[in-house]
Structures are given as structure tokens and as C-alpha cells.
Computed example of a mutant assay.
Amino acid sequence: MSHELATIVLAACGGLLVIVGLLFFLRPRWLLGWLKGMAVFGLMLLGAYVLIIAINIAGYQSLEGMQTVATISTQRQGDQLWRVTLEPQNNAPYVETLRGDQWQVDARIIRFSGPLRWVGIAPGYRLERLGGRYTSLEQERAQPRSVVGLGEATWPDLWALDQEFNLPFIEGVYGNATFMPMRDGALFDVRLSSSGLVAVPVNEQAREAVQEWNQ
């Protein structure tokens, strides 16, 4: 489209919008009806947004300060094959067989701002996945992966919607994960704050595994 044609089209659209706006003022009933309709529509949108937040908050657990959210223990079953037990706080344990040299836990965190923070809604978390990792990059690319979901998906997914649309008053924290080496008889605490996950060795086997891993 040439600049001349674009100018004509835009001028016509602009003039039409001005005329439509003037008609609202010439007939106040139209304007009042339109304003009422927009106010009702805005309230409905706000109510739907609040309902979505409420539905999603029900699927998350409250997060205030640093707290232990789960424990993980590992038992060797074979070469790079492990029986991993994850025990979330106040939930039934997960007992899974994982392949690899390390375990990894992923979590989702939602933080609130504005009026949602003013009313005292604490950040929420949900443990998302438990999986195995290989130390070797070649194995990580070529060997079969073992990943277990830890939480049921909620629809609509507020965390995913925030990642895509940057929702108001919501902050879905991305990329929260922690991982540690496997060791027969090792026990770890998984701790979480509003900034992310941290794994802490609890017994001697876990501390030895971390010490060797860091060398």
C-alpha cells in the first residue's frame, strides 16, 4: 500500500471514529448505556481473573521463608539404576526407579504483587517433576531419560499463562530446579524459598557424595 493510499484509509477510519464518538455525546443515553455495558464487562473480566487465581492457588502450597518441602533418599538397584523415594511435606511419598548419576527436582513458584500482596497472599509452590540426570553429556543426549510428574495440571494454568502473557499482579518464577548426585543410602532435604530450590545433604552418605562430586 502506497503512502498516499494509506493516508486516505487512515484518515477515513479516523474521521469515522470521531463521528461515532460525537454521536455518543449528541445522544447521552447511548453514552450512558455504553459506559454501563463497559463497566459490567470490566467487572465480569475482573471476577473471572480472580476466580482463575483462586483455582490455581488451591493447587499450590503456601511458601513463607526458607522451608523444607521434601526429603529424597536413594538406593542403588544396578549400574546407573536407582530407587528414589521423594517424601513431600504433608503428602504421600513417591517411590520411583530412575536412571542416571544424579536426581533432579523441579518446582513452580508463583509470587503475587499489588493488591494480592496487600491482602497477605504468600507466594505459593508446587513440586513439578522428579527425574534422573547423567554426568556424561553423551549419555545425557543418547540414553533414555526417566522423568516423573509430581503434580496434577490445573486448568487454566496461571503459571503458564503468566509466562506467555505477563499477567498483572502475578509472577511465575521460571526454571526452579535442584539436583544432587546419587549415592546408595544417601538422604537429602529439599528446601525452598521464594527465590528457588536448594538441596541439603542430611546423612554421611549424602555428604560424601557431594564432596566427591565437587572435587
Rank of each mutant, 00 (worst) to 15 (best):
L5C: 02
I8V: 15
A11W: 09
C13D: 09
L16W: 08
L17H: 00
L22H: 01
L22G: 14
L22M: 10
P28E: 05
W30M: 08
M38G: 01
A39K: 07
V40T: 13
G42C: 14
M44C: 04
G47N: 12
G47Y: 14
G47M: 14
Y49G: 00
A54R: 12
I55T: 11
N56Q: 09
A58S: 11
Q61V: 02
T68R: 13
T71K: 06
S73G: 09
T74M: 01
W82C: 11
T85V: 12
L86S: 03
Q89H: 08
P93G: 04
V95Q: 11
V95A: 14
T97Q: 12
G100F: 07
D101I: 07
D106N: 11
I110A: 03
I110K: 05
R111N: 07
G114L: 04
G120F: 15
I121T: 03
I121E: 00
Y125S: 04
R126D: 07
R126M: 10
L127M: 07
L130T: 09
G132S: 07
R133T: 06
Y134I: 02
T135S: 11
L137I: 12
E138K: 11
A142K: 13
S146W: 11
G149F: 05
G151H: 13
T154F: 04
P156H: 06
P156W: 13
D157Y: 08
D162W: 06
F165W: 12
P168K: 09
E171Y: 10
E171M: 03
A177E: 08
T178F: 06
F179H: 04
F179K: 01
R183T: 07
D184K: 07
G185K: 01
V190N: 05
A206I: 01
R207F: 03
A209C: 06
Q215K: 14
